[in-house]
Design a protein around this nucleic acid. Structure first.
Lengths: 150, 150
DNA sequence: AAACGATAATTGTACCTACAATGGTTCCGT
DNA sequence: ACGGAACCATTGTAGGTACAATTATCGTTT
C-alpha cells in the first residue's frame, strides 16, 4: 500500500484524480509544518516570511499592500494584518504615500533584511528535506501542477 | 513563462526543488479555495467535511477522537473543536465511552449521512475541475508526492 | 464645486491551526 | 490500597484565512 493511504489510513480512492487532490492537500500540510518549524527559530511564520521575501525582491522600492497581496501564495490572506505583525517586529516600515493618500508604502527594514540573511544560512538544511525526489521529478511535478491549475 | 511564475509574479527560483515546494503550497491553496466554495452551499467547511467522511467510513462503528485525528489530512488540527462544530449542526453524536471513561465515542448521525449524500451529488462537477490532467499524469503526480515525503 | 463611483486599506466576525498546559481516568508497581 | 506514570480529551492563547462591511481618498462628470 502506498504512502498516502497508509498515512491517512484510507484504503482506496474512487479515482486517481481524487487521490491526487487529497495528496496535494496532505503534502502541502506536511511541507507547511516543516517550514514553520525551521522558521520558528527565527521567530517568524511562513506567511510573514513570504511577505518579507516579496519586499526584499522589490527593495529598495516600497510596495503598496495590493501589490504584496497579488504576489502572495495565498491570495485570500490579509496583508494588512501580516504587515502589522512584521511592523511590530521592526522588520518593515509603513508610510502613507503622499502622492496618493489612499495607499500605504511598505518597505523592508535593515532588521528585516538581516532576519532574511540569517534564514538564508539554513537554506541548505531546508532544501535537503526536498531531496527525496530527483531534479527530473521536480520538473515533472512542476509541469503537472501548472497543468492542473490550467 | 510558466504558470506559477506568472501567478506569483516571481521570475525565477533558485532550484527546481524550491519551485516544487512553492508550487505544492500554491496549488494546495488553490484547491482548498475551490473545495471550500463548493462545500459552502452545504454549510460545511472542508475540515468538517473531512471529519464526516472519516466517520462515514467507519459507520456504524463509532471512533474515538484520537482515531479521527490520526486519519485527518491535517494532523495538527484540533479534532475536539471540529467535532463540536459538527455536533452543533447535529451531524455527529458524542458519547463518553463506558468501558473507558477517558475516551469519547463519536458517530455520524442520520443528518450527517444525508449531508454527505447531498454533497455526493455535486461530485461530478467537483471532479471535472481536476480534469486538466490525464489519469497517467495523476498517477505520476501521486507517485512523486509520495516519494517526496519519503 | 458638489456628487458619484472607483480605489485602497482597514475592521469585524467566524472558522481553522499550532502548541503548551490542564484535568480527569486508568494502569501499574510496590 | 496508594502514588505516580500514561493516556485521552479539553482549554487557552496566538497566529492565520474567508468574506463582507466600512472608511478614507481620489478622479470624473456635470
Amino acid at each position: 500500500m502506498a504512502s498516502l493511504e497508509k498515512e491517512i489510513q484510507q484504503e482506496r480512492f474512487a479515482t486517481e484524480h481524487e487521490k491526487a487532490a487529497v495528496n496535494i492537500l496532505f503534502t502541502s500540510s506536511w511541507l507547511h509544518s516543516l517550514n514553520a518549524s525551521r522558521l520558528k527559530k527565527h521567530d517568524i511564520t511562513p506567511e510573514q516570511f513570504n511577505v518579507l521575501r516579496i519586499l526584499r525582491g522589490s527593495h529598495p522600492k516600497p510596495l503598496m499592500l495590493a501589490e504584496i497581496t497579488s504576489r502572495m501564495l495565498d491570495k485570500n490572506s490579509n496583508a494588512t494584518r501580516l504587515v502589522e505583525k512584521l511592523r511590530q517586529k521592526d522588520c518593515v516600515s509603513r508610510e502613507i504615500c503622499e502622492n496618493n493618500r489612499r495607499q500605504v508604502d511598505i518597505s523592508i527594514t535593515e532588521k528585516g533584511l538581516s532576519v532574511l540573511k540569517s534564514i538564508d544560512q539554513d537554506e541548505a538544511t531546508w532544501m535537503s528535506m526536498l531531496k527525496n525526489i530527483t531534479k527530473q521529478e521536480a520538473m515533472e511535478l512542476n509541469r503537472i501542477l501548472d497543468k492542473l491549475r490550467g
